[in-house]
């Protein structure tokens, strides 16, 4: 019971962080058709900017400043990079973001070095909020969840109550129609790209100190965020939300299951020993395979339902 409750909370906080990362990516992917490989790099930059600003002026201002700085970088990337290669097609756009991610990592190496930086949780939040039986639950995780939920609500209102939000929603599903109606689609693209980058940056600010701020952090979340977006479905923020929570839960809960195919064989009365053929494969436990499960889920989803969980259209 203790394990279950603690893990449930953990999966929720991880899932929400994933959503913060993937919401921006879903918007960009759905509208522009570009799988932005540099998205996770914006997450990393958010963490590094927050580290730098929190050293100078403290964590709270950094919470605002860092995402804005990342948003500015995102806008520049769209305006001077993606828009230039747009005419060469999606592959070129995708490769542009691929190359950008590569360069951002090298530049981070240069500026902040290759070792992790000491980006610490602010002292005010460094205590345990409550205990579940004997396990403490850190206040910072609660704070992370609050920020994520706050962002979720803000995003919801921005998309449903503002003019630009409605245009974005329309371009999610009918990009051509929106353009025909005379809206400046490139500018909408730039706004969305900057906004998406800002969300990733915000995720970096709160994730960077909860985990580690280091040059490999972009690569470590990069592909998992893709999985969330593809699993959730193109053009659907709700899908991305559900997918984030599902993937978060799959990754955290699988750790608790120490069952492998050997257990199944034993149940069926099949005898196995270390000499059996494919023994390596049978002895892999669910907890061992946990981190690979999202990819299996994604592949299965794409095979049986290429639109994704709640997607409106195929890629």
């Amino acid at each position: 019971m203790e394990f279950f409750l603690v893990t449930l909370l953990n999966s929720l906080s991880y899932g929400l962080l994933l959503f913060m990362l993937s919401s921006g990516l879903t918007l960009i992917f759905s509208m522009m058709g570009v799988l932005n490989f540099a998205h996770a790099s914006f997450y990393m930059l958010g963490a590094y900017f927050a580290f730098q600003t929190s050293q100078a002026i403290g964590f709270w201002p950094a919470l605002v400043v860092a995402p804005i700085a990342v948003a500015a970088l995102g806008a520049i990337t769209e305006r001077y990079g993606l828009r230039t290669v747009h005419k060469y097609g999606h592959v070129a756009e995708l490769l542009f973001t691929f190359g950008l991610a590569y360069i951002i990592e090298e530049i981070v190496h240069l500026i902040w070095g290759r070792a992790p930086v000491e980006y610490k949780i602010p002292a005010v939040l460094d205590f345990s909020a409550f205990s579940i039986f004997s396990t403490q639950y850190p206040a910072y995780r609660v704070f992370m969840m609050l920020v994520s939920v706050g962002m979720l609500i803000a995003l919801y209102f921005a998309l449903t109550r503002t003019r630009i939000g409605l245009i974005i929603q329309a371009s999610l599903t009918h990009p051509d129609m929106v353009e025909s109606l005379g809206h400046n689609v490139p500018r909408v693209f730039m706004t969305v790209f900057a906004g998406g980058a800002a969300l990733a940056g915000l995720a970096g600010v709160i994730g960077g100190n909860a985990f580690v701020t280091e040059p490999g952090m972009a690569a470590s979340v990069g592909t998992i965020v893709f999985v969330v977006v593809v699993f959730g479905g193109m053009g659907s923020l709700a899908g991305a939300f559900v997918a984030s929570l599902v993937i978060g839960a799959v990754q955290t809960f699988s750790v608790g299951f120490d069952y492998s195919l050997l257990n199944l064989f034993a149940l069926l009365g099949i005898e196995t020993s270390a000499d059996s053929a494919w023994y390596d494969l049978w002895k892999v436990t669910i907890s061992q395979a946990g981190p690979v499960l999202p990819y299996i889920l994604m592949v299965l989803m794409l095979i049986f339902r290429p639109k994704g969980l709640m997607g409106t259209r195929e890629g």
């Binding site: 058709g33 799988l35 999606h90 592909t223 893709f226 999985v227 593809v230 990819y295 299996i296 994604m298 592949v299 794409l302 095979i303 290429p306 195929e314 890629g315």
Partner: peptide
């Protein structure tokens, strides 16, 4: 599949 779904499955 072709296009993006193909790319993503291959990545997976």
């Amino acid at each position: 599949h072709s296009g993006t779904p193909f790319a993503m499955i291959s990545l997976g």
